[in-house]
């Protein structure tokens, strides 16, 4: 039971990171029907940006207060990653809009190769260890007088921070999509781009903003990733990227709550599988569940079934 609780906490933490990345996939897919393969690498880039911003603040500007530094790094990484994704969309995807389906996919794969190698060239191929931060760990089983020795359920400040920031940002983002004119324009573009344009919505700008929002959420995940694992490498984008994409598809691609749900599920499956079975096959488990879900529930958990008109 204690182990179960502990794994639940770990799984939710990991799942939050996947969920944040998955939103970027699902939003871009929803609005232009394109699988943005470069999104995982954008997440990795944002982790690097966050790491360097943090070091600029602490080493060059000698900022003492950690909460302020964390906040500045979060906002800065979101803004700069948003700028990156805006530029990427402008240069690599916009010229291919309206072209056939595989063209933007290949362009995105090229962009993914470009981004990971770009980071390798400018920052070097080695692992970058992040500076150690104080991390208070709460022992949840202390007060209960429970289990001696074998397991104790712990919850660290970082894990709390990850879950709280994820929840707050998701709530803010949900409000943005459901209750603002920007969100309405975006949902309109998702349903019918041509009609939305006829009704005076600036489709190009809306799509650009979608990319920026997706990148900003990926940057949040990047900041969390560096903070949680304490190390980042130029090749770290691919696996979380594929898993987040899996999460988006599992939840029903195009559906925002689905992406978060899928992310949490993938995180939980991975953590529980590693804990109760074997770490070796945790990725196989995640992919198998994806395949099984899609075969029996082809539009994901919360996705709308695709109806084909003849």
């Amino acid at each position: 039971m204690d182990n179960f609780l502990q794994q639940l906490i770990n799984g939710l933490t990991l799942g939050s990171i996947y969920g944040l990345i998955a939103i970027g996939y699902t939003m871009v897919y929803g609005i232009i029907g394109m699988v943005n393969f470069a999104h995982g690498d954008l997440f990795m880039l944002s982790a690097f940006i966050a790491l360097i911003l943090f070091m600029i603040l602490t080493q060059i500007l000698h900022l003492g207060s950690l909460p302020i530094a964390f906040f500045v790094v979060l906002v800065g990484a979101m803004a700069l990653t948003g700028l990156w994704n805006w530029t990427i969309e402008r240069l690599a995807y916009r010229p291919l809009r309206g072209s056939f389906r595989l063209a933007p996919l290949i362009s995105a794969i090229g962009m993914s190769i470009f981004l990971s190698n770009f980071v390798q060239v400018v920052q070097g191929p080695r692992n970058k260890p992040a500076p150690q931060l104080p991390n208070h760990v709460f022992n949840l089983t202390d007060g209960l007088g429970g289990a001696k020795g074998a397991y104790s359920v712990t919850l660290s400040v970082r894990q709390i921070l990850i879950m709280v920031v994820t929840t707050v940002l998701l709530a803010a983002f949900w409000y943005l999509v459901q209750h603002t004119s920007l969100g309405r324009a975006q949902r309109a573009c998702e349903q019918d781009r041509k009609m939305a344009a006829l009704l005076g919505i600036d489709v190009d700008a809306t799509i650009s903003i979608t990319f920026i929002i997706g990148a900003a959420l990926a940057a949040v995940a990047g900041v969390m990733f560096v903070m949680y694992y304490g190390v980042v490498n130029f090749a770290d984008g691919f696996v979380p990227g594929v898993k987040a994409f899996t999460a988006a598809v599992l939840g029903g691609i195009g559906s925002l709550p689905g992406a978060v749900l899928g992310g949490l599920l993938i995180g939980l499956i991975e953590v529980f599988w590693s804990s109760y079975f074997t770490t070796d096959y945790k990725d196989v488990a995640a992919f198998m569940i994806l395949a099984i879900t899609l075969i029996f529930m082809p539009s994901g958990i919360l996705g709308r079934p695709e109806v084909e008109k003849v």
Partner: peptide, 11 residues
């Protein structure tokens, strides 16, 4: 790096 960029440009 150039391989990735060339893929985008050629597309």
């Amino acid at each position: 790096l150039l391989f990735g960029a060339a893929m985008v440009v050629m597309m």
